[in-house]
Amino acid sequence: MNQTKVIITDKLTKRFGGFTAVDAICFEVTKGEIFGFLGANGAGKTTAMRMLCGLSFPTSGKAMVAGFDVYKENEKIKQNIGYMSQKFSLYEDLTVKENMQLYGGIYGKSNAFIKQKTESILTELDIKKEANVLVKSLPLGWKQKLAFAVAIFHEPEIVFLDEPTGGVDPVARREFWNMIYNAAATGVTVFVTTHYMDEAEYCNRVSIMVDGKIEALDTPHQLKQTYNAGSMDDVFLKLARKAVRTGD
């Protein structure tokens, strides 16, 4: 197995005035890994993710993402990662095909690449008939799958998924995780947040943030043993209940 580290953080910290949102977090993510990034609302997940995506400069500490430094090479990071959130990912008033052309174009891909990749996604998702349909008219489960395909359209090293499956029906949710597995098998690293604790079980490793710090990081199996818990839900409750600060 390839042991390349695609994310390395060392005491990564972000302060807003006197408030330490992310408090000296240290972890590494291996290429092709599905890494679950959990935490209660307000634990600092979003702030940490924004730093890793090159959208926000850390106050102190170090981080390398896809081989690039978050301070000096944040533009390079953006070119080498994909991002998808439940709240926004696709343009509803563009067609399926237009969305792919737009994202391909933004990432500077050639017309030939875009054409070939578009075809392969339409085939893979079995949505050839819907290629020229506006995204807003697609069922939610399809949109989510399409959004994921678009997030990795430019073949990034890492894809960040911020609560990708919120509100999706249980069958579509499982189909979505199937896509995640397939992507990881091709070497894409998946960094994912979720409020569904059963999904934490599908990750290779899981970190749990509490009050800006990473309180636990291990395989789901090992976490359950360490915290003497029957499920990841129990592990999460045991850790998150320790939180002092509240809210988003």
Binding site: A40, N41, F236
Partner: peptide
């Protein structure tokens, strides 16, 4: 409880 973490949901 949509988008709310497991502790707050409880």
């Amino acid at each position: 409880t949509t988008g709310v973490d497991a502790v707050s949901r409880k």
